[in-house]
């Protein structure tokens, strides 16, 4: 299990990193935390001829509020996000899901951007990013563009990031009064999910739901939103009965994945359960957050 040979560069700026990428084309690969790429190299499932190490680019690593958005640099370590007060305040869902992502030593290296760019269908962060409606800042030599969460995840291990592009930051609209919840079934704690469900609810003072997002992970090639479930909730008072009905409204066809560790039938059985639990947690959380 030794990687095939490759060259290595460790640029110090975003511009240099992109220049290397452009020069080398599709045989180059960014190395972020290495927690997914390194095993792929060792197994020779990835065979880049150039590895561009992003770890020396300081401007990719930050957590800050800017224009009402929580901005997290792509190279910010998962562990740093888990420990951040700013994140706790503005996007606690990220911390909730990160507790299920690997283990302290993998979170010490693994990055937010790496997980989102890698877009493993069973990963948790993409589910949270979709539920939080994060915006993805992507750079290339042509400049910067911003992709909405609904457009970012395009397939299994496929995102809107194009050849020649680097994900530099994600931006999460702050909604301090919304509530969120997350549930997953994994075979062991810290493993990728068999099914995960994230819920995000904005509740008005009178108890009606003004906005709802429900996202399932590991049910298809990308995380998916459940509009039918969301529609069940929006504009109505949210309570246990409403939540159960909303969870049951998940169309079976949304759940496609059928894999070694869990069949489609099983996933279809538990998706509504996890959704109900995530919504219940979100409702409780919204109650806490409410003024």
């Amino acid at each position: 299990m030794k990687p095939a040979p490759f060259d290595y560069v460790a640029p110090k700026t975003i511009e240099d990193a992109i220049a290397h990428l452009n020069r080398h084309g599709s045989d180059a690969r960014f190395l972020a935390g290495g927690q997914s790429l390194m095993p792929m190299l060792a197994l020779r499932l990835a065979r880049p001829t150039l590895v561009i190490d992003l770890n020396r680019i300081e401007t990719l690593s930050h957590i800050r509020m800017q224009g009402g958005e929580l901005c997290i640099g792509a190279m910010t370590r998962q562990g740093a996000v888990l420990d951040s007060n700013l994140v706790a305040q503005h996007a606690p869902l990220l911390q909730r899901v990160l507790r299920e992502v690997g283990h302290p030593p993998t979170r010490a290296r693994g990055t937010i951007g790496g997980s989102l760019a890698h877009a493993d269908p069973a990963a948790e962060l993409p589910v949270a990013a979709l539920a939080l409606q994060a915006r993805f800042v992507i750079r290339s030599s042509a400049g910067e563009r911003i992709v909405a969460a609904d457009d970012f995840f395009q397939g299994m291990f496929e995102t809107a990031i194009q050849p020649g592009e680097l994900l530099t930051e994600i931006r999460i609209p702050s909604a301090a009064t919304a509530g969120s919840g997350f549930e997953e079934i994994a075979l062991r704690k810290g493993d990728f999910a068999i099914v995960s469900a994230a819920a995000w609810l904005a509740i008005a003072k009178d108890g009606t739901c003004t906005s709802a997002r429900v996202v399932l992970g590991s049910v298809g090639p990308t995380p998916v939103r459940c509009p039918a479930t969301e529609a069940h909730l929006i504009g109505k008072p949210v309570n246990a009965v409403a939540i159960s009905a909303a969870a049951e409204a998940i169309p079976e066809t949304l759940i496609e994945s059928d894999s070694l560790n869990a069949s489609r039938a099983y996933r279809r059985r538990i998706a509504p359960v996890l959704t109900r639990r995530a919504l219940t947690a979100a409702l409780k959380d919204a109650g806490k957050a409410a003024p």
Binding site: I194, N261, A262, S263, A265, Y266, R269, I270
Partner: peptide, 15 residues
Amino acid sequence: LTPERILFARTPGAA
């Protein structure tokens, strides 16, 4: 005894 087998232990055929 995976979660799936346990869940379907009472409804054979589902798994």
